[in-house]
């Protein structure tokens, strides 16, 4: 899995990544490289370390060992090109902020943290909010938005970063059908613009429809590669340890799906 020397440079490459909370390892010797662009899913059972992998790549949790390269460079050198969309449940939505306030947070890394946003930056934040279909909700307090709308606000904040590589932690968790569709549209557009988006995804049935590339994760990297070659019954059974009773059905459904080829 380390044959990453060939051009083009992978958006994310990880070698020998090990992370442990206290004694038990959460990720064990993970090695993985993504394509340079396109939509990439991280799939695996609960507690497989999917979110931890993202956080370890972003230096949000300490690594025991291993190396992370983003566009071939260490994170610190390319911080501006990286965007992060945390889990929706990780913040307090009663926070005194409007939807536009939250999206504006995505502009500070570019505009500078220590002064108010100028007109251009505010317009960029508004445009990001419009892109996820929430232009009319700009001045709504975030706690008064539905779960799906809150998720879209997070997505808009990520868009406002104008990054080249996005890490998204379960953007589809607990959203309504309309929001799911809106998010997929935005993701496709990002991929068409040549950006790379790495998404922690829970739904095996939709994974082959939405994503080009996949990493099957369960403590270790079980398999990775283009959806058509890596998202196989065998690999899924290994990732899920045969614990899923509906696995065969899900795989059958997935196999019939038009798995998109990797882009870029």
């Amino acid at each position: 899995m380390n044959n990453t020397a060939a051009l083009p440079i992978p958006a994310l490459s990880v070698r020998h990544l090990t992370v442990a909370y206290r004694e038990a390892p959460v990720l064990w010797e993970v090695g993985w490289a993504t394509p340079s662009s396109g939509l990439v899913a991280i799939v695996g059972p609960n507690g497989a370390g999917k979110s931890t992998l993202i956080k370890a790549c972003l230096d949000l949790v300490p690594r025991l060992s291993g190396e992370v390269r983003i566009f071939g460079q260490p994170l610190a050198a390319v911080r501006r090109r990286v965007g992060y969309l945390p889990q929706r449940a990780s913040v307090d939505w009663d926070f005194p902020a409007t939807a536009l306030d939250v999206v504006s947070m995505g502009r500070y890394p570019r505009a500078g943290w220590l002064r108010p946003l100028g007109r251009f930056q505010r317009e960029a934040a508004r445009a990001a909010l419009a892109e996820v279909g929430l232009a009319d909700f700009a001045s709504r307090q975030i706690g008064q938005l539905s779960g799906g709308q809150q998720q879209r606000v997070f997505l808009a904040r990520a868009l406002a970063l104008e990054a080249d590589l996005y890490f998204m932690d379960e953007p589809f968790a607990g959203v309504d059908a309309a929001t799911e569709k809106a998010i997929v549209t935005v993701l496709r557009r990002l991929a068409d613009q040549g950006k790379a988006v790495i998404v922690v995804h829970h739904d095996l049935a939709t994974a082959p429809h939405y994503f080009d590339h996949v990493l099957l994760l369960n403590l270790r990297a079980i398999a990775s590669g283009p959806m058509s070659s890596a998202f196989t019954p065998d690999n899924l059974a290994r990732a899920y340890g045969g614990r899923l009773s509906l696995l065969d059905q899900a795989v059958a459904a997935a196999a019939g799906a038009p798995g998109a080829a990797p882009r870029g």
């Binding site: 911080r79 990780s90 902020a97 947070m105 500070y108 108010p116 970063l161």
Partner: peptide
Amino acid sequence: VLLFNPLRVLCFDEAFAAASGL
């Protein structure tokens, strides 16, 4: 007042703040 924006982002979403390089 000087640290208003960084503190606001920190208070709302620490993980995002850290990932944004704060």
